[in-house]
C-alpha cells in the first residue's frame, strides 16, 4: 500500500485494467472506511452529538449571524478595541524580546556539542516541558500566581517563545560545523568569544527568521491568553461574548485578523533585512 508508486507502471496498469476488472475492490481500504464510519458513529454518541442539537444550533446560528452584522464601529467600542489591541501588541513585543534574549543561552545550554551532558540534558528537559504546555494552560497558571492582567500573559508567552526558539537554536547549533570553533579555540579565545565569533555567525541568520515568526505567533496567541485572564484583546473579546455584543465580537475578530496579517508583513520585512 505504502510503496512509492512508479509512474509508468501506474499508467500502464490504468491502460490495461479496463480489459479485465475495471477497478478491483480494495478490501483493506473498504474495511478501513467502515471502521472509520463506525468510530464516527460511536464517538458521536459519546460526545452527545445529535442531529437535533445541530439543527437547533444552526437555527441559533442564523440569529447569531444577523446580530453580528453589521460589525459595531461606534466610537466607544473602537476606543475599547484600541485599548485591548495596544495591550496585546505590547504583550507580544515584550514576550518576543525577552523570549529571544533568553532563548539564545537556553538553546546553547541544550546543544549537546557545546554544553556538558548534565547541563544539556536538563536544558533539553526544560525545553520539552515548555513545548508540551499549551500557552493557555501556562497563562492560567500565571494568572493564578501573579494575578489577572498583562503580566500573566507576558510570562505565558515568554514560556511559549522559549520552548519554540530554544529548540530551534539547539538544533541549529548541533547542525553547525565544529571546524571554525576548533580554530577559534586554538587561538585561545574564551568561551564567550568562541560563541560570538564561531557559533553565532553560523546560527544567527536562521534565528532571525525564527524570531520574526515568533513575533507573529505571539501576536496571535496574545489574543488567546487574554481569554483566560492574561490581558489584552482576548479579555475584551471574552467580555463582548459574555455581554452578547456579537456585533462588537465581529469587529474584534476582524481587527485580530488584520493585525495578524500586518504582523506577517512586518516579520517578512524583518527577515529580508537581516539576510
Amino acid at each position: 500500500m505504502s510503496a512509492p508508486h512508479d509512474d509508468t507502471n501506474l499508467g500502464i496498469a490504468a491502460l490495461a485494467a479496463p480489459q479485465r476488472v475495471a477497478f478491483p475492490p480494495n478490501w483493506p481500504a473498504r474495511i478501513g472506511l467502515l471502521v472509520l464510519a463506525l468510530y464516527v458513529a460511536y464517538a458521536s454518541t459519546i460526545l452527545d452529538i445529535t442531529w437535533a442539537r445541530f439543527i437547533i444550533g444552526l437555527d441559533h446560528g442564523a440569529k447569531f449571524l444577523s446580530r453580528m452584522f453589521p460589525p459595531d464601529f461606534s466610537a466607544d467600542k473602537l476606543s475599547l478595541l484600541y485599548v485591548g489591541m495596544t495591550e496585546s501588541l505590547q504583550i507580544a513585543i515584550i514576550a518576543t524580546v525577552v523570549g529571544v534574549l533568553l532563548s539564545l543561552p537556553l538553546g546553547l545550554a541544550a546543544a549537546r556539542n557545546l554544553a556538558p551532558p548534565p547541563l544539556a540534558w536538563s536544558a533539553r528537559a526544560l525545553i520539552a516541558l515548555f513545548r508540551s504546555l499549551h500557552p493557555v494552560i501556562v497563562a492560567i497558571l500565571f494568572v493564578k500566581s501573579v494575578g489577572f492582567g498583562a503580566l500573566a500573559g507576558i510570562l505565558a508567552l515568554i514560556v511559549a517563545s522559549l520552548g519554540f526558539l530554544s529548540k530551534l537554536v539547539a538544533e541549529s547549533v548541533e547542525e553547525m560545523s565544529m571546524k571554525p570553533l576548533e580554530a577559534v579555540r586554538a587561538a585561545g579565545a574564551p568561551f564567550l568569544s568562541v560563541v560570538t565569533m564561531g557559533v553565532l555567525p553560523q546560527v544567527i541568520p536562521r534565528f532571525i527568521g525564527f524570531a520574526a515568526y515568533q513575533l507573529d505567533s505571539n501576536l496571535r496567541n496574545s489574543a488567546l491568553v487574554g481569554i483566560v485572564g492574561g490581558g489584552g484583546i482576548g479579555a475584551t473579546l471574552l467580555t463582548a461574548f459574555q455581554r452578547f455584543d456579537y456585533d462588537f465580537v465581529l469587529t474584534i475578530v476582524l481587527a485580530i485578523i488584520a493585525i495578524v496579517m500586518v504582523g506577517e508583513i512586518v516579520s517578512g520585512w524583518m527577515r529580508r533585512m537581516f539576510q
Binding site: 444550533g57 446560528g61 496567541n221 488567546l224
Partner: peptide, 21 residues
C-alpha cells in the same frame, strides 16, 4: 486558519451551548 480554535470555540459555545459538540 487565522481565527484561533479557542475563538471558534467561543462562537460555537454561543451557538450550541457548552459541551463537546
Amino acid at each position: 486558519r487565522s481565527v484561533h480554535a479557542m475563538v471558534w470555540a467561543l462562537f460555537f459555545v454561543a451557538l450550541f451551548g457548552p459541551g463537546a459538540l
